[in-house]
Amino acid sequence: MTLAHRPGGHSAARRRALLGRATLTWPGLAYITAFMAVPVLLVLGFSFLTRGRFGGVVAPFTLDNFARAVEPVYLRIYAVSLLIAAATTALALLIGYPTAYAISRLPARWRTVALICIVLPFWTSFLIRTYAWILLLNSEGPVNRTLLEIGLIGAPLRLLYTPGAVIVGLLYAYLPLVVLPVYAALDRLDPLLREAAMNLGASRARTFWDITLPLTIPGALIGAIFVFVPSLGNFVVPELLGGGKTVMIGNLIRDQFLEARDWPFGAVLALMMIAVLLGAFAGQAAIARRINGTARA
């Protein structure tokens, strides 16, 4: 306002705003461009190159890497990965949604405490948390011992180094990522909607199925993406808990870069993961738009 009285004050303020924007946002945006956008573009570029004889890559441009990616041996790995990631995601939603719902109905004070307890493990060492499951699932570990002692089983079960162990490990790693967005969606939900439904005579279950659940599906889908995509790309859990017998896309990608030294093929596989991520977000956005559209109509 002071500026407006000064001749040229407006353009001076604008110049200052531009300068402020430049000095504040430019370094960060440039950094993200250099160390995230450029790397992703390099992955894209490498996917068209040919593997060099001594590692590394050479021209000419080729589509061979993409053709190789649809060979049956790899299709099987994708199928296993998709199955395991889908099972993990389904379990995460089955456990995560009711957990978030229960938290949203706690007294305000306890809500924060419960949320913190949910996210806390997520901020700790992922390797150590995966390692803990090796202890638990071992044939002489606590799970088998407990089952033996209560007489549920006669001999130790083979729990470790199975696809089931991989699913449990992935679920353990990513469960918090489902609870948070579902909780956020429940928290944003206008309580008037539910009150109105109840006042109009809807039962509690009816209110949940007709109001709460549909309106929180977008949040649940975000959570599902946060579980599904990193599960596909995780190579540590299949290796440590699957004993290397369960090969997922993440293992395949790691091997191309560290063992096979076939970077172009690894780049193609990484691109597929980006495609899954973008496709999932696009699907989520479309569903969210439709749900919001119906809710408003």
């Binding site: 946002t25 450029v38 790397p39 992955v43 790309g233 790691r254 780049a267 990484a270 993961m273 980006i274």
Partner: peptide, 29 residues
């Protein structure tokens, strides 16, 4: 200053992109 939804998403992207993809991209870079 900017209030751009797109740039905001861009600034959060490094936390959302799968770590394995970011890792090999950086290795290539």
């Amino acid at each position: 200053y900017t209030r751009s939804v797109l740039l905001e998403a861009y600034s959060l992207a490094p936390a959302i992109i799968p770590d394995l993809v970011l890792a090999i991209g950086l290795l290539i870079l």
